[in-house]
Design a protein around this nucleic acid. Structure first.
Length: 435
RNA sequence: GCGGCUAUGGUGUAAUGGUAGCACGAGAGACUGUGGCUCUCUUAGUACGGGUUCGAAUCCCGUUAGUCGCCCCA
């Protein structure tokens, strides 16, 4: 049997309800902060990612789904969305508009990695990008936005970590400093870190290995050695975050994998997730726009993994997502009765009244069983007897009472029942099925 | 990409190398036109492909998928 390709998932109807809740909540919270949705293609020129994400990153080196095309480097299924958003920003000259662009996106991303829980080959991100200002208040706004979103989703236990990696002047300087400090201890480091030492020395900082962490003792930390401008920027970020009441931890050893980050970086982790514990991460990228051929425009943003978010939420969405239940079930016995019910269903649909019907000519017993499982408030009963007398029966599934009503006026009667119920309970709450 | 573990009806689980069973679910029925409970019946499975063996769910190899850790990252 053909199955979904490794690392991809079907999202079945029940699960889709959770996804829609997440998406709709994001649109509403982000909208309140003045962010507008942008949709870019799911594939781009390969070169875009090479130039933005970084040539020597794992993403570019081995995780991209690239389709060769004549002339050029081919096209690539987007592994992240910051670069496409920046590309779109440049292509449509949004930089020329005299305002800060506040954008968000929702959609699938693709990375060819070994799948694990919370790590898929097609996964989904909700992300935010602010282009056009280097002001620290925007770093803070974006973090605050994320924090509000998480708490509005009802997620507890999220942990914010914040750091500054400096600008394009002091970031490389720090790398050299770190190399210098570690030089004598290289051989004590784990195998990975010996490689990192050569390739990307900053990554040694967040190695989980105890030996490496021990070697890092007494080493100068990023926030202490970044340049004065970066230091001032970071001070502002810390101050404003505290004033907004966003709780966070200073994580001086936090670094990020993507090359383009400058100054503020942050990560949100959650204990429900295991090894892939980051549900969202982001930071400032003040030179990406320029390096993609645009003007010198500062920017900041984050990406959030939707699958990881839903994992972290586990059962916390229960009760917040109401199942859609039909209001009534149309039971029929005989072909003619079915046809009348089928036509009636169309009338009900015009009035947005959700009903269910049995298409298989099953027994009344079976139809009632199903009606009960569906949790409908009423069953409309129509058999030969009722047809002959131009009536239908309406059975209240809660009280068990049955009444006969004129077939001609049944739609109005159902409508008035709904209105009646609305005025009583102020909402349409279907009964729970009998157990 | 590397290493470990796992794979039994739709779901959750049993079965020293010797009859694949149980629960839930689903379907039908129990004075022929009425829900729940109960009862009866039905349904459906050893992931795939090889091998060892008189005999394999069970042992071996490969594949696929999941999972955990590494790498990396959302």
């Amino acid at each position: 049997m053909i199955q979904a390709v490794r690392g991809t998932n079907d999202i079945l109807p029940q699960e889709v309800m959770r996804w829609r809740f997440l998406e709709e909540k994001a649109r509403s919270v982000f909208g309140r902060y003045g962010y507008e949705e942008i949709r870019t293609p799911i594939f781009e020129e390969t070169e875009l990612f090479i130039r933005s994400v970084g040539e020597t990153t794992d993403i570019v080196e081995k995780q991209m789904y690239t389709i060769p095309e004549e002339g050029g480097m081919g096209i690539t299924l987007r592994p992240e969305a910051t670069a496409p958003v920046v590309r779109s920003f440049l292509q449509h000259n949004l930089a020329h508009e005299d305002r800060v662009q506040k954008l968000f996106y929702i959609g699938p991303m693709f990375r060819h990695e070994r799948p694990q829980k919370g790590r898929l080959r097609q996964f989904h991100q909700i992300g935010v990008e602010v282009l056009g200002s280097g002001h620290p208040s925007l770093d803070v706004e974006v973090i605050d936005l994320l924090s509000s979103f998480l708490s509005e989703m009802g997620l507890s236990g999220a942990h914010f970590k914040v750091n500054s990696v400096g600008c394009r002047v002091c970031k490389p300087k720090y790398g050299e400093l770190l190399k210098e400090s570690l030089k004598s201890k290289v051989h004590a480091l784990c195998g990975n870190c010996q490689r990192r030492f050569e390739k990307n020395v900053l990554r040694v900082l967040d190695c989980k290995n105890e030996i490496c962490q021990a070697a890092l003792e007494n080493i100068p930390l990023l926030p202490d050695v970044i340049c004065q401008d970066c230091r001032n920027h970071f001070d502002q970020v810390e101050l404003l975050l505290a004033e907004l009441g966003v709780s966070f931890t200073l994580a001086p050893k936090l670094v990020r994998g993507l090359d383009y980050y400058t100054r503020t970086i942050f990560e949100v982790t959650h204990a429900n997730l295991g090894a892939q514990d980051a549900i969202a991460a982001g930071g400032r990228y003040d030179h990406l726009v320029e390096s993609l051929g645009g003007p010198s425009v500062c920017a900041v943003g984050f990406g959030m993994g939707m699958e990881r978010m839903l994992l972290a939420l586990q059962n916390e969405l229960e009760g917040k997502i109401l199942p859609v239940r039909p209001f009534l079930f149309l039971a029929s016995l005989g072909e003619q009765a079915f046809q009348l019910n089928f036509l009636l269903q169309k009338e009900l649909r015009k009035l947005s009244i959700l009903s269910e019907i049995d298409y298989e000519a099953k027994s009344f017993k079976s139809q009632f069983r199903r009606a009960n499982k569906l949790g409908v408030k009423y069953v409309l009963i129509r058999g030969e007897d009722e047809i002959a007398r131009k009536v239908v029966k309406l059975k209240n599934m809660v009280s068990g009472m049955e009444e006969e009503v004129s077939a001609e006026h049944v739609v109005e009667i159902i409508l008035s029942q709904i209105k009646n119920q609305l005025s009583k309970t102020n909402e349409l709450t279907p009964p729970t099925p009998l157990k």
